[in-house]
Design a protein around this nucleic acid. Sequence first.
DNA 1: GCGGTTTATGTTATCGATAACAACGCCTGT
DNA 2: ACAGGCGTTGTTATCGATAACATAAACCGC
Lengths: 329, 329
Amino acid sequence: MADVARVAGVSPMTVSRAFKLDASVSAARREAILAVAEELGYVFDSTASNLRSQKSDFVAVTVPSINNANFADTVRGLTDGLKARGLQILLGSTDYDMAEEERLVEQFLRRRPEAIVITGGKHSDRCRRLLEASGVPVVETWDLPEAPIGHVIGFSNAAAVRGMVDHFVAKGLTRIAFLGGDVGQDTRGADRRLGFIAAMHAHGLAADRLIAAGPPPISMREGADAMARLLATMPDTEAVICVSDLSAFGALTECQRRGVAVPGRISLAGFGDYEIGAVSVPALSTINPFPRQIGARTAALILDVLDGRQTTPARIEIVPNLLIRESSV
Amino acid sequence: MADVARVAGVSPMTVSRAFKLDASVSAARREAILAVAEELGYVFDSTASNLRSQKSDFVAVTVPSINNANFADTVRGLTDGLKARGLQILLGSTDYDMAEEERLVEQFLRRRPEAIVITGGKHSDRCRRLLEASGVPVVETWDLPEAPIGHVIGFSNAAAVRGMVDHFVAKGLTRIAFLGGDVGQDTRGADRRLGFIAAMHAHGLAADRLIAAGPPPISMREGADAMARLLATMPDTEAVICVSDLSAFGALTECQRRGVAVPGRISLAGFGDYEIGAVSVPALSTINPFPRQIGARTAALILDVLDGRQTTPARIEIVPNLLIRESSV
DNA sequence: GCGGTTTATGTTATCGATAACAACGCCTGT
DNA sequence: ACAGGCGTTGTTATCGATAACATAAACCGC
């Protein structure tokens, strides 16, 4: 920067200002300075800038898995909403593991992010403590924890599944199974399963058709395997709600291979409104929790917090949308 | 850090060393220092560390899209290979746009990453110049550019598709179509299309069944729409190679809705070995370019470069695997 | 027991940008 | 003509950790 300043015939401070979009430098001079910088091949050093200004221009984000269209959509909404402000996303995946989440959060906090976005509302004690002590604005998403760390933008997984159970029951189906959500690691999956059980009980129905699909991420293949087990052990099942569209599609393929008609003999539903659910034959009934919107609103909230427009913890509830399609008609 | 040092009764330098895993501090003292730090709620400041040591512990990565299982797999391989060394991934998506890529690269270089990984081998002039001038090790992936910027770990998209064309021709099919890859933005898609054309010509066949699917990312829906157009305009087509498994699956669903037998009347193939291709009914023939391995080997290469074991530009060619499944039997 | 080496710790200056403050020129209104 | 204000530029000290060097203590073989 000193070199650029010398060549441009100004002080380093003026060069510094020329690189900040808002600072007061005459337009002509800024242009000249940027031209000199480009010619000299000068590359601005954000590290030094961050240290002195005590701002990182980072927003840290943890997701359970990068390879998941739902979370990717949330990240997309976040990125789009934040990049206008020059905020960089620091992305990390926890692999549905709270210990890994804790490690990630600790790493991230060392970079002094402007805000930190966590997927889910359940964390290790130490992770929670670190976040609370950090002074960094925290947003928990994809969940509605009872005692949030800071801000929350999420939805009730249990309530969403209840809507689907209601739909099946209204169709006259009573022997309904739930596939997945059997492992505590995937707290959202577990919430959906608990929501299923509660909804069945509310209808006076037995919630005893629970099929395990193993630890997340639940693949299509695991959905197919679980459906095979279900058909073998409880062949009179009339409807199946799956923990995600991916497992639902896997379940569908298993039905197709066995000649089990969907929705003729078994009605199917997924969760997440993945593209596969809209395109598959039959199209899958599902629940859209608006992942992109979660990201977009989180971004907007973060900007509000950084600009001082939001000073109290926000609690924003997204209402998922029930999509009834061919698989459950 | 000074506070921690005072409480622990040592110099700040010793505290600093206690936080570096390799530095020479007696085990007892390190433990004591870390305990004090934890109690005081001290959080190490990576920014300051980076500035002074002139190391960022960042590896920057650009991908065309986060929401793509193939690229997510590559990122996964990278992350896994790098996190043991405490290297943080700085991830950005270009949306298949070279201008956006240039912007991202410029942003990333300001953070002085230890290395930068770029998906693809085609870039804007300025982007290339910035990378070359930066002195940062560059790895281009998912492609085999003729004049690489630095290191390359990729495969030939054209050659991979040729293998699939050969397979169809060996089966006696000659009226073969290619779906997608019509837009220059997606250079890998375009390479596959060109590879298709060249392979057809090599067999003395006309490569005139080219169906546009629009700009990337090509969705399942767009694959279905393109298949509808193909069936309408060239109903005597015997086989279709799609630019990805996602579009191939979309194409398959269109066939199912119209009662067109796959592979009975039309043979189908995709690209990428996405899970959908293995699970769908019929399972899709496809090409596995080992995205996870690309990431893993890129990580290994980066470590080799950083440790001085690799001093010349590497050129590693991955050989994709042809997977023949039910859709093309 | 003594030079020589290793191990563990401390001291000082520094990475590169910028906050905070000062100052200068220019305009404006009275 | 002059106080006051704004827009633009410069000066100085500083953000928090650590490289490089210095030093003290411990170890070691002969």
